[in-house]
Amino acid sequence: MSEMKLSCEAVRQIEEVCDKFNNDAGELIAILHECQSRLGYLPEPVQRVVARKLGIPASKVYGVVTFYSFFSMTPKGKYPISVCLGTACYVRGADKLLEEFKRVLGIDVGETTPDGKFSLDCLRCVGACGLAPVATIAEKVYGRLNPADIRKIVDEFASRE
């Protein structure tokens, strides 16, 4: 259920975004994109406000949010981690990298650590295939990663304020 309540400020922001796009249902993806960049993620109540503003069923909005992996219904961590599973990275052991991230962080893909510091996602190619396997942490690219390096890198971010 939508037990989570949105702040008045969040509702105002969503409405502002919808108004900016003239509440045009055809602009749903662009609207969701901007809502996510402002609010960090797209939980149920956000989708409901968007649906109401655009005059479309919430099921339509939910369908789009679940279709595109870019959209997230869980808040991202302070340091979002994305492991590249593109072909080059994959053949150089990205799957083992991903397993190690999961083990070290104790979360699955698409989840966020309880302390809110890390979230884990996969992506396809960041254009650094020469450095495969690659992961990005807080938008910084780490190349030629070895599963043995992961613990150290995570610890380093964890100790930051």
Binding site: I56, P57, S59, K60, Y62, G63, T66, F67
Partner: peptide, 10 residues
Amino acid sequence: SVGVLGAVRR
């Protein structure tokens, strides 16, 4: 026009 059912995920 009930709008309950829809496709989700991909």
